[in-house]
Design a protein around this nucleic acid. Sequence first.
DNA 1: TCTTGAACCTGTAGCAACTACAGAGCCTAA
DNA 2: TTAGGCTCTGTAGTTGCTACAGGTTCAAGA
Lengths: 137, 137
Amino acid sequence: MTVHAPVKPLQRAEIAKRTGCNLETVRYYEKVGLLPEPPRTQGGHRAYGAEHERRLRFILRARELGFTLDEIRALLLLVDERNAPCGQVRNVAAAHLGDVQDKIADLKRMERVLKDVVAQCADGSRPECPLIEALFR
Amino acid sequence: MTVHAPVKPLQRAEIAKRTGCNLETVRYYEKVGLLPEPPRTQGGHRAYGAEHERRLRFILRARELGFTLDEIRALLLLVDERNAPCGQVRNVAAAHLGDVQDKIADLKRMERVLKDVVAQCADGSRPECPLIEALFR
DNA sequence: TCTTGAACCTGTAGCAACTACAGAGCCTAA
DNA sequence: TTAGGCTCTGTAGTTGCTACAGGTTCAAGA
């Protein structure tokens, strides 16, 4: 068995490149408590392991789904301390889904109005600019 | 003719209340150059006129449509200096419409994935939490 | 072994678009 | 006249990064 076989640690630039994360953002996630503090070399350089990489990927995927850092913190806490109870995880995700749907509704409202005024501006049938008119109404 | 009839000026709290704008935001829009500096009373209090109110409403409506402050600045410049040429106004609006549509597409992608995992979490058919699994993939 | 240049370290500032506070001053109605 | 509710200024906080300065360490080549 090769349990605890010492895997070659990753420098910050390496973990950043492998995950596609910005170099500075890696340190930022550590600062805000999403990524655990990695061990250091004698000179003080961070030495990341496979678990850090795994966790960083988790964070980045969650960000792609639009989760806030607070929500991600909550999800990671569920993972770390409770072995990820599906019901609670689902609650976090469902609440976030609601937020996403609200935002879509907001943006669609904007889209409708904008399409409308752009079309009116385009056809040149009005002496005054319809968008400006609409905003000054 | 009652040109320049002295309309009773508005205090900051009054213009805020009438437009629905946050009190502090009124001052903020002045600071960033969207709202012109109003005349002051002897004691230094701002005294807004009808034109300020009109302009503030314009800004707030544009914000509701998702325009950035830079875009609103550009629109107001077109209004102030060029009498709002419809073609240029339309360009600003069309570009913004594109941004809005991009955001909608992003959010819909998130929505699709989230709906999916929430449904999988809900039906309890998997031993591990599907959302957590998906994020750690 | 020495050197050099890349990568790292910390702390801080900047972005958007507000929002909120502290500590001071003004204004008006009773 | 005075109370208390405005207003004033400047600054700090929010979210989620991103970028810099000025200094240190590391690793590869000579």
